[in-house]
């Protein structure tokens, strides 16, 4: 199989303008099969515009792309046959019940015995926790219930690609956890492409992340690489005691490029920038502990939180492409 077959979504210079506003600028995005792809960005970054372009709901101003190898402009009906989509602010027919809504959507995809269709709908309602509300008109649904219905309708067809625009919006913590569990469960069957601003959720389930800002892709990388940062390997040491002797010993090593020191409440924190991670792993702590007066409280390789990376990239316009 060629590498290109592995890309479920592949865009090239995809752009969209509304009058004088460039909503999306020359997006080159690749989403691998069976990934959970987190699509991040501040409000107005162009996330929803990208999703609508992929679905054929709007037309690109220039550039293009493909989903499952189908052109997003010419073959968007074929694309939508394999997609489940939850919009940011979804609207359904308010006179329908949840069951009728799922039945209506399922019939775009399936034909066959009525029992089989009803079983599929019942399974989906169960998955979404809507079984006991299945036959109530949805005009009485709360925001959270509508969001659950949105997730249910998006996956009633067992899509090869699930596109979720802010899936955890309007959900309480329990609902958010359920959504993440559903996404984890579906990972082996489907590719999930979802936009969100809840960075904790992204860090928990995503394997790849792209960050969009002002319509431009400013970062796209596997989660591990993104969290490792792009400013070299850094070890963090938190200790008590006088570190001057240890600092002299450590600084002399050629694999140490610099040490940033901060102090708070009698504790000293070092950020040690190293050029050889393997040597640092085996020698750094020994060098520090050679001084018996020093007590090391924390030691480890610096791991960024996604929020930290996100803010650095978005506020600093740092470009990260792996």
């Amino acid at each position: 199989m060629e590498m290109s077959d592995n890309w479920v979504i592949n865009t090239h210079s995809l752009s969209k303008s509304y009058k004088d506003v460039e909503a999306l600028k020359s997006l080159d995005l690749k989403v691998a099969k069976n990934s959970i792809f987190g699509f991040l960005g501040p409000n107005g970054a162009g996330k929803t515009t990208t999703i609508k372009l992929l679905l054929g709901l709007i037309r690109p101003t220039s550039g293009g792309g493909s989903v499952f190898g189908h052109d997003i402009l010419r073959d968007n009906v074929e694309i939508r046959k394999r997609i489940g989509y939850l919009a940011q602010n979804p609207s359904y027919y308010k006179h329908m019940t949840a069951r009728e809504t799922l039945r209506f959507r399922a019939r775009f995809f399936y034909t066959g015995p009525k029992d089989a269709l009803e079983n599929r709908i019942a399974e989906t309602l169960e998955m979404a926790g809507l079984t006991n509300k299945a036959d109530r008109p949805i005009k009485g649904f709360s925001g959270g219930e509508l969001q659950r219905l949105g997730i249910a309708q998006a996956q009633v067809n067992h899509p090869d690609l699930l596109i979720l625009d802010e899936p955890a919006a309007n959900l309480d913590p329990g609902g958010r956890r359920d959504v993440l569990e559903v996404m984890e469960r579906l990972r082996k069957y489907t590719t999930i492409f979802y936009s969100t601003h809840i960075l904790d959720d992204v860090q928990q389930v995503s394997d790849t992340v792209a960050i969009l800002n002002h319509g431009e892709l400013v970062a796209q990388a596997p989660m591990e690489e993104l969290l490792a940062g792009n400013d070299g390997t850094i070890y963090t040491v938190v200790m008590e005691g006088d570190p001057s002797g240890a600092q002299a010993r450590v600084t002399r090593r050629e694999w140490v490029s610099s040490i940033d020191t901060t102090s708070m409440n009698g504790r000293i924190t070092w950020r040690v920038h190293v050029t050889d991670e393997e040597v640092a792993k085996s020698d750094l702590l020994r060098l520090i502990l050679a001084d018996e007066d020093i007590k090391v409280i924390e030691f480890g390789r610096k791991q960024y939180e996604l929020e930290e990376v996100f803010l650095r990239i978005v506020e600093g316009e740092e470009n990260v492409q792996y």
């Binding site: 054929g56 709901l57 074929e78 939508r80 046959k81 919009a87 979804p90 609207s91 359904y92 775009f108």
Partner: peptide
């Protein structure tokens, strides 16, 4: 918004 929902299906 129901038209947008419909058009996100294979219609």
């Amino acid at each position: 918004g129901t038209a947008a929902w419909i058009m996100s299906n294979p219609v």
